[in-house]
């Protein structure tokens, strides 16, 4: 009779080598990266006009707005941004992608190595929720890094917020933040809490999570891949992956 153990042994080790090694292509597909203009890029005017969310401006691609729809690929852009692309600056004022990586002190550094994560959905499409929860599956297995999901913000160190903030979720999200003990950090996962993403400007939505909670790190992407979420969490804990 086959057993669970046999089955598991048969499949071997699935777990990612991240953060010891950089994220693989299987872990971060092309759409996991922000588009950048390639050498053969045509005039930016067409790309700016073609972008449905206004993420491309004269000074470049704003990752906190891009929903990875691939329209700009026709104008000579390619998905070539860095994998670890989380940023601290509020959306709309974000500099070039990855400019501030590791520059500022990590807010949770004094906590040591183990962190507890709590997921709050303030109006997502469920994809980011599932990507966050995927961190617990054997491919990413964040418990090997001392990260655990908790069922109450009372035990949480990091609030992972997904979705574009709706009016109805402002109060509940603040309650969750208030319920957390100090020191605490907020990581905004996905383009929605950065800038509203595809739904920017719809009635009843707040433009950014930064307006209702002090956000320590924004993770762009629609949705960001688990490896990118993991990178942001490790960064607020001061444990970011270092290039050898």
């Amino acid at each position: 009779m086959p057993s669970w153990i046999e089955q598991a042994a048969h499949r071997g080790i699935l777990t990612s080598r991240y953060p010891r090694e950089r994220g693989s292509d299987a872990e971060v597909p092309p759409t996991g990266r922000a588009p950048v203009p390639s050498a053969s890029a045509g005039p930016t005017g067409a790309a700016i006009a073609g972008c449905p969310v206004g993420a491309i401006g004269p000074e470049g691609v704003e990752p906190g707005r891009c929903i990875r729809c691939a329209r700009c690929l026709a104008h000579g852009y390619r998905f070539g941004g860095p994998v670890e692309a989380s940023f601290r600056a509020p959306p709309g004022r974000a500099g070039p992608e990855g400019a501030d990586v590791g520059d500022e002190p990590a807010p949770l550094a004094p906590l040591g190595r183990s962190l507890h994560l709590f997921l709050v959905d303030v109006g997502s499409c469920n994809a980011c929720n599932l990507e966050v929860l995927a961190l617990a599956n054997p491919f990413y297995d964040v418990s090997r890094l001392g990260l655990f999901f908790t069922n109450s913000p009372r035990h949480a160190d990091v609030l992972l917020v997904v979705g574009v903030p709706t009016d109805a979720m402002v109060e509940p999200a603040r309650r969750a933040y208030d319920a957390m003990p100090f020191p605490k950090a907020v990581v905004a996962v996905g383009v929605c809490p950065c800038s509203g993403g595809a739904f920017r400007g719809n009635p009843g939505l707040r433009p950014s999570l930064g307006d209702i909670l002090p956000v320590d790190r924004f993770v762009p992407g629609c949705p960001p891949t688990p490896v990118q979420i993991l990178d942001a969490v490790l960064r607020v804990a001061g444990r970011a992956r270092r290039e050898e």
Partner: peptide, 29 residues
């Protein structure tokens, strides 16, 4: 109603191709 994003209501007047980008983000899975 907690995550009411008014997607369908806000679609009026958008091109079909742009609307599809929002439709697929109603429920990601």
């Amino acid at each position: 109603g907690y995550k009411q994003r008014s997607v369908l209501a806000a679609l009026a007047g958008t091109p079909v191709e742009d609307a599809a980008l929002r439709i697929e983000r109603i429920a990601g899975n």
